[in-house]
Amino acid sequence: MTTSTARNYPWYYRPFDWLLTGLAYLPLSVLYGLAGGLYLLMNYVVGYRKRVVLENLRNSFPEKTAAEIQQIRKEFYWHFAQVMVEILKLAAMSEIELRRRVTIRNPELLSGPFAQGRTVLALGSHAGNWEWILPSGALEFPGRAYGVYKPLSNPFFEEFLYRLRTRSGAHLIPMRDTLRDLVRRRTEGRAMSMLTDQAAGPEDRPYWTNFLNQDTSFYSSADRLASQFNCPVVYVNIKRVKRGYYELVILPLHDGNSPLDKDANVVTEAFARHLERDIQAQPASYLWTHRRWKHKR
């Protein structure tokens, strides 16, 4: 893995950069000890977005008792604390260690279209450890892993996360440049990773469906892009196997060969159903702090 030496943020962030980078060189076993402190802080001291987490869980699992909801909440905060240090570890993690910790299932669903010079839309979510998806894909498919992202307003965190996400050779595409990038690289065999489980507002032309017992808006761009560029589409789930180990499962959503009605939102609906099943299977592994249902139809 390689890192950029450029620093495009104000000088007063440098001590924080040195601190985070130094912590990243600690073994994960030590970092998980720090995660324990983060868990206690988030769960018992500051109650980080506790109201949002509880509201999301209660609405998503109305069949569960209050005690069961509280148990999932605690398990989520513990998982989230571990994911935070795992993301930090990317700053110093070797290729060998990352390969050992992430197993990729069904990679042929990507390698086949790559050989044909096609762009595959890889739809992921904030489940498991979402930040390990792109670096792992870049190791499995060198030069073919691209990720669509929304740049952060803070210059330090924008650059720090950019370094983490691109250390293993992945490429990043600002969200506003997605269409332009597809036009320019439409004949290159590659994967374009998109986390499409965020709350889609009215300006995003959302697709509405029942998801986790709630009326939910989804970004519908995957259907439009797949229809316009004949892109195969896959669903990507990074499932937690045990602490620090994940299974990246790739499943087909659209082959890119048959006609696709961009307004029918077949791909987005299939994505929602896959994600719903995965969340129900491992509820504590989803990012419940996000205000997923803030928009109304």
Rank of each mutant, 00 (worst) to 15 (best):
D223M: 07
R243Y: 14
Y246E: 02
P206W: 09
V249Y: 09
V267W: 05
L182S: 07
S193Q: 07
N210Y: 15
G256Y: 01
W208L: 10
V234W: 08
L212M: 10
N257T: 09
R180I: 08
Y245T: 06
R180T: 13
E188H: 06
T196S: 06
D215A: 12
M175R: 00
S227H: 04
R240H: 05
V233Y: 07
A191F: 13
R167M: 00
L195P: 11
A191E: 14
D223H: 04
K242C: 15
G201R: 14
R205P: 13
Q198A: 14
Y245I: 13
V241W: 10
T216E: 10
L251K: 11
D261P: 13
R180D: 04
R184D: 03
L225M: 11
A222R: 04
E247W: 05
N237G: 15
V183R: 12
N237Q: 14
D177S: 11
D255H: 15
V183Q: 05
P252Y: 14
E188V: 07
V267G: 07
A191H: 04
Y245V: 12
L253K: 07
H171K: 11
E188Q: 09
F218H: 04
D177I: 01
N265Y: 10
S227T: 03
E247T: 05
Y219N: 04
M192Y: 02
L212H: 08
R243H: 09
A170Q: 01
T216A: 07
D177N: 07
T187Y: 02
F211M: 04
V241D: 10
Y219P: 05
D261W: 07
F211S: 03
R186W: 02
L248R: 03
S221H: 03
R185S: 04
E203H: 06
Y207T: 06
R184H: 10
N230H: 15
D261V: 11
Y219I: 07
M194W: 07
F211P: 06
S193K: 00
